[in-house]
Every structure is written in structure tokens, then in C-alpha cells.
């Protein structure tokens, strides 16, 4: 079952953003390609090394969730040149998240499941939004200032 329309990000969320690239998420190699693409765009646009590492780490966390827990998905990178922001959307058709607050809650667990990665991503990204429906999928939007 595809993600219902209310749970996806569309033009109204993205505003005047231009699509830079789109990546299929299936293998762990795709995760590397996706985060490296983000890092490259950020560096090309003069982002600081710390800001690149923080955001690329957040990207790594969310794309891994899509690949490992949802059987894959799609990853898109957008830029808003006027407001100087980079936005990424990671979308999957997986099981969805029943309790988003719980998934985002922090705290070290040695097993380190899904929650740790998502909570970490939220902390590292400037803007973080998540939409999800059980048995339908999850869509995460994150932005960073360039």
C-alpha cells in the first residue's frame, strides 16, 4: 500500500525548491551514494565542514532506516538558492512508525535500534519533519542552511 497523500511531502512543503537529484534506496551502497551527494552539494555551496558532517550524518541515519527497516525507498535532494537551504526528502513504503514520539525519543540503548538513529538525525538537522502511516510508509524531510 503506498503512502497516503496526506503523509507525503509535496510542493507546498518544498516551496521554491529546485530538485537537484534523486536516488533509489535499495542497498547499503545506495545509502553511501545518497549521503555523499548531499555532502558534495553542500561543499560546492560553501557549507562549513562541521555543517556538512552533521547533516550528512543525519542523512545517513534516515536513509539507513528506509533501507533496513522498510525495504528501500527513494531519496531526493532539493535546493532553495534564494533562501540558501538544502532540503532532502527520504521516502519509503515500509511498515511505518506507530509511535513517532517514541521513535524520536533519545537515550543511549546499546542495542541501538531505530529510535536512536531518528532522534539523532532530528538533533543534527536544522529542520526535521516526519510523516508516517502504519503499514503504508514513512517520509522524512530535513533541511540545512547553506
Amino acid at each position: 500500500m503506498p503512502l497516503p497523500s496526506y503523509a507525503k511531502f509535496d510542493e507546498s512543503d518544498l516551496g521554491a525548491q529546485v530538485l537537484l537529484s534523486q536516488h533509489r534506496l535499495k542497498t547499503s551502497g545506495d545509502a553511501v551514494t545518497a549521503r555523499q551527494a548531499v555532502a558534495r552539494y553542500m561543499k560546492e555551496n560553501g557549507a562549513s565542514a562541521l555543517s556538512v558532517t552533521r547533516f550528512a550524518t543525519a542523512v545517513s541515519e534516515i536513509v539507513r532506516n528506509a533501507i533496513n527497516h522498510a525495504g528501500g525507498g527513494e531519496f531526493s535532494i532539493y535546493v532553495d538558492r534564494r533562501r540558501k537551504t538544502l532540503t532532502v526528502v527520504c521516502w519509503d513504503n515500509g511498515p511505518g512508525i506507530a509511535d513517532v514520539d517514541l521513535a524520536l525519543s533519545d537515550g543511549y540503548t546499546s542495542g541501538g535500534g531505530l529510535g536512536r538513529g531518528l532522534g539523532g538525525a532530528k538533533r543534527l538537522a536544522g529542520r526535521f519533519e516526519i510523516r508516517t502511516a502504519v503499514n503504508a510508509g514513512t517520509s522524512v524531510l530535513m533541511s540545512v542552511n547553506l
Binding site: 562541521l50 558532517t53 552533521r54 550524518t57 536512536r116 539523532g120
Partner: peptide
Amino acid sequence: MRPTVAVTLVELGM
């Protein structure tokens, strides 16, 4: 370990 990586890991609580 790069400085940026160290800062980010600490921020992640790792």
C-alpha cells in the same frame, strides 16, 4: 578521527 566527526558523535551521545 576528524574534529567534525568527534563533535557530531558527542552530539549524538556516542
